Simulated assay, not measured.
Amino acid sequence: MTYSDSAKADLHRYLQEARDALVWKLEGLSAYDVRRPLTPTGTNLLGLVKHAAGVELGYLGNTFGRPSGEPLPWLAEGAEVNADMWAAPDETRDDIVALYRRAWAHADATVEALPLDTTGTVPWWPADRAELTLHHAVVRVIADTSRHAGHADILREQLDGAAGELPGATSLPSADPAWWAAHRDRLERAAREAAGRDTTDGPGTRATS
């Protein structure tokens, strides 16, 4: 969708880039690798996409009186805590990505239909501060999606070394593994040298061999 005014177009551009990056990080991975927890708090690639779908449908749907009708049991009252951050065995990658793309379309339709100064009410916020403008809501969704796209960058690199922002526009200075190995070694040496000069007492201030 192309938004009808320049302010909306700018917002949409950055939101869509973050959306595309998040989905791209799933490509080429096994069902196990897209789901496996890669941090002590369980962060995983498919869970990030599932979470992002719910964020869009909430902030750019329900908040402005435009419910999508999508069933989201993991966000319902009484649902297990953190259920939107991981995929159950019967929740397929295709289903979650398709849900996310439908969330994009629903969110885009909301932004296209309403002025940016339209006021909505966030159902899950405290009543005394639950109102926000559509502009605020879109910026909030951009920030959330971009943050999780950054998480996905690191998770994917941990899995198979794949890195970059988008296909054909990675924003990386080199594609040569040898260049990156030398770069990483240089950073390690610099970190150790700095730690050796650091006289601050406390954990994490000195490198060990």
Rank of each mutant, 00 (worst) to 15 (best):
D201W: 15
V122I: 11
A127P: 06
R184E: 09
W24E: 12
Q158S: 15
K25F: 08
H183P: 00
P40W: 06
G164P: 09
K25T: 08
W125P: 00
A194F: 13
H51Q: 08
T41R: 10
H135V: 01
E77G: 05
P71Q: 10
D5G: 01
G78N: 03
H12P: 00
A52I: 06
P126N: 06
E91P: 01
D33M: 02
V23T: 06
R102T: 02
G120V: 06
D153F: 15
H51R: 07
Y59G: 05
R93T: 12
A137T: 03
W124Q: 08
R197S: 07
A178N: 07
P173I: 04
E112D: 14
E91G: 11
A103Y: 03
A53P: 04
S30G: 06
Q16P: 00
L26C: 09
D176K: 12
G58D: 10
D95P: 02
P177D: 09
L38E: 11
V34S: 02
N44S: 05
A87Y: 01
A181F: 05
P115T: 06
D94M: 04
H183W: 13
E131F: 01
D144Q: 15
A130M: 08
W179F: 15
P126I: 09
V49N: 03
A149C: 09
E56L: 14
A181E: 15
P37C: 07
D201Y: 12
A31S: 13
L99P: 08
V111A: 01
V97T: 06
P89T: 00
A182K: 05
E27H: 10
A195C: 07
I96W: 00
D201P: 13
R13T: 10
T63P: 03
L45N: 03
T110P: 02
T63C: 09
A21F: 01
A127Q: 10
A207F: 14
R129T: 08
E27A: 12
L132S: 15
D108S: 11
A98M: 05
R101D: 14
G196I: 11
A53Y: 01
A31W: 00
E165I: 09
E165Q: 12
V49M: 02
A152W: 13
G168F: 14
A178I: 06
Y14E: 07
P71H: 09
T63S: 15
G28I: 08
P173Q: 03
S68T: 04
S30A: 04
R13S: 07
R197V: 07
R156D: 06
W86C: 01
E17V: 03
A98E: 10
I96K: 03
A113M: 12
D160M: 14
T63V: 11
A207Y: 08
N82Q: 06
A191Y: 11
A76V: 01
L45H: 05
V49H: 04
R66M: 11
E188P: 00
P167V: 15
A152P: 11
